[in-house]
């Protein structure tokens, strides 16, 4: 699951972490557009270099590399499928071309994932929530998003506890054929579900006493504010992107 590892936030204090999440999101989107627009190798390589520089500035290189490593199986799959597709449809004349184009597609997928990995690695879920709010997404959706992040590790721990409890009564989870193994999921899933239901009830009670949904005009302790450095970053990335657009449309 190393690909997910690359999407988990870790607290940091770098210039990249401090950027407004909306700017970071936009940068990721622009990168995505470039990846879609260009197939030229040198541009794609440049994009990777830019990303590497950003990862370095944010001190998340190792985790960023993990995402890339995690996305390799997926990239191999894309490569294989495309190669088969190109060969069977005869889109490209030579084998060399087939391989080149399949590789580019696979590589673009990696770029796509790694660009979002930088966003998620340097943006707190709380900031993502604030971003959603600033886009006027109704609060219940934002709340659902934040709760999902808040409770995932708790439920993962619960799952481990249940497995320990059931193994302690003689259930051998990793023995038997596929059918037997599927049957062994029941003693794990039923308690997990029962716990989840009870937890949901308790959460609902606590939400109730904390006035959830009392008013449509919900306020918020923190607010996203664009600062000069955010505008600067925005300007730089938009200029670079426009240059790229211009060259694509008129020069190439």
């Amino acid at each position: 699951m190393s690909i997910l590892e690359g999407l988990k936030f870790y607290a940091g204090d770098t210039a990249i972490h401090k950027l407004d999440p909306r700017v970071k999101f936009l940068v990721s989107m622009l990168m995505l557009l470039m990846v879609v627009m260009y197939t030229e190798a040198w541009i794609l390589v440049t994009l990777m270099v830019v990303q590497a520089a950003m990862a370095y500035a944010a001190k998340v290189v190792r985790r960023w590399l993990k995402t890339i490593k995690g996305s390799i199986p997926l990239a191999v799959l894309v490569f294989g499928l495309n190669a088969i597709f190109f060969i069977t449809t005869g889109t490209h004349a030579t084998l060399q071309e087939v391989l080149y184009h399949s590789a580019t597609l696979a590589y673009r997928l990696v770029l796509f994932l790694s660009s979002f990995s930088i966003f998620f690695l340097t943006t707190t879920p709380e900031e993502i929530g604030l971003t959603l709010t600033s886009w006027r997404i109704p609060y219940p959706y934002t709340f659902a998003f934040i709760s999902a992040i808040r409770f995932t590790p708790i439920i993962a721990q619960e799952l481990r506890d249940i497995m320990d409890a059931q193994r302690s009564r003689g259930i051998e989870l990793d023995k038997g054929g596929p059918l037997q193994r599927a049957k062994k999921l029941v003693p794990i899933l039923v308690p997990l579900l029962a716990n989840a239901l009870r937890r949901a009830y308790e959460l609902a009670e606590a939400m109730e006493v904390k006035c959830f949904g009392a008013t449509k005009n919900r306020t918020s302790l923190r607010e996203l504010k664009m600062r000069s450095r955010d505008y600067a970053a925005l300007l730089v990335s938009l200029t670079l992107f426009s240059l790229a657009m211009y060259s694509r449309l008129f020069l190439l």
Binding site: T124, E126, I146, I154, F212, R218, T219, R222
Partner: peptide, 29 residues
């Protein structure tokens, strides 16, 4: 205040959790 602490906290930082009910009521920042 309820029995199980973890089931009364919804946010990802302590201060946001303390602010939660006040935000829901639309109290000024």
């Amino acid at each position: 205040v309820f029995q199980i602490p973890e089931n009364q906290l919804f946010s990802l930082t302590v201060e946001n959790d303390v602010a939660f009910a006040l935000e829901n009521l639309g109290i000024p920042r």
